[in-house]
Every structure is written in structure tokens, then in C-alpha cells.
Amino acid sequence: MPTNITLVRGDITEQDVDAVVNAANTSLLGGGGVDGAIHRKGGPAVLDECRRLRAGHYGRGLPTGQAVATTAGRLAARWVIHTVGPVYRDSGGDPALLSSCFLESLRVADELGARTVAFPAVSTGAYGWPVADAARIAVEAVRGADTAVEEVRFVLFDEGAYAAFAAQID
């Protein structure tokens, strides 16, 4: 379990942590929301590594609930850990799939030696997961994780998401 879980209302691309987690799509090639912001701010190095991943082991894309790391390019972080959250309506709201995003991201962080990791509210944007439920699943997963990560920082873009996560931390 991480020694410290913190909340920040702000922009995940501005976080000075070892690794930021990207709410990626299966293509790993960028998209909207957090994914697009990380790719834009991280620059071409992030996309180049994602293309190499797609040309190799992830030729069909990154499966839902899995995680993989790349450089962070121009971000303050050292690494980007890409995870694909479930689409709520397609997954039937399966909490195990969403939980896996956090657990797998922490597993990758441990492999990298990352001690500070910033997560967005995975699957709550275009993927439609209800924010309060996603916050519960995320916090439970992180609290129950066997990890050497010392700080997990949930970086929430808006007040509603921040409040939903704060309700789980208190």
C-alpha cells in the first residue's frame, strides 16, 4: 500500500512525479481528454515510443485493464504509464476491469522503480464511468495494492471529480 494518497485539482501534465498515468485508448496513439493532453505536452518522443510498442508486442493495441510505460518526453515526469480503462456501457460496469488499470499501473511503476505516481480519473470522461463509483474503485484498488510506490496522487481536472475522490479519502 502506498504510504501517502493525495488529491490535487489540476492538470496531470503539470505534475512533478516519477510517472504520470495516461488514460489511453487501445491504439496508444493519442486521443482526446487526458490522452491527448499527455501526447501534446509530452511531444513526439511519447508518440514515437507508442508507435514502437504497436509495431511490436502490442500490434493489436493495449488491452483494457493493462498498462505499459514509455518515456514522458517533455513532461516533468520521467515516465508515462499508459492504461486503457473500460468503457462503462461496453463493460457492463465491471469494477474488476477498472481496478486492474490501477493495479497494473502500480505494477509497472514498481518495475520502473517509480516512487511517486499521478493518476487521472480513469474511464470517467468519454468512457462514461460514473465518477463516484470510479473514485471508490480507484481508491480501494490503490489502498489494497502491494506496491513500493510511496505516493499516489489523484489529479482531478474538475471540482466534481475532486469531491468524489475526496469523499473516498476522508
Rank of each mutant, 00 (worst) to 15 (best):
M1H: 13
P2W: 01
L7P: 11
V8E: 14
V8N: 14
D11C: 10
D11K: 08
E14K: 15
E14S: 15
E14G: 12
Q15P: 08
D16V: 12
D16S: 15
N22I: 03
N22E: 08
N25Q: 11
N25A: 11
T26K: 13
T26F: 00
L29H: 07
G32Q: 03
D35I: 03
G36C: 08
A37S: 14
A37N: 10
I38L: 15
G42D: 04
G43T: 08
V46A: 03
L47P: 01
L47S: 06
C50Y: 02
R54P: 03
A55V: 02
H57I: 11
H57K: 15
G59S: 12
R60Y: 12
G61N: 11
P63G: 10
G65S: 07
Q66L: 12
Q66T: 12
V68A: 09
V68N: 09
A69M: 01
A69P: 11
G73H: 07
A76Y: 11
W79M: 01
H82I: 05
T83Y: 00
V87H: 13
Y88D: 06
S91A: 14
G92V: 04
L98H: 05
L98C: 03
S100D: 13
C101L: 07
C101W: 07
C101A: 09
L103M: 09
E104S: 15
E104M: 12
R107F: 00
A109S: 11
A114S: 12
T116E: 12
A118V: 09
G125W: 06
A126F: 05
A126C: 00
A126P: 00
Y127N: 09
D133S: 14
I137Y: 03
V139S: 00
V142P: 03
E150I: 05
R153Y: 06
F154Y: 06
F154N: 00
V155R: 01
F157K: 04
F157R: 10
D158C: 11
E159Q: 15
A161F: 01
Y162T: 13
A163Y: 06
A167I: 02
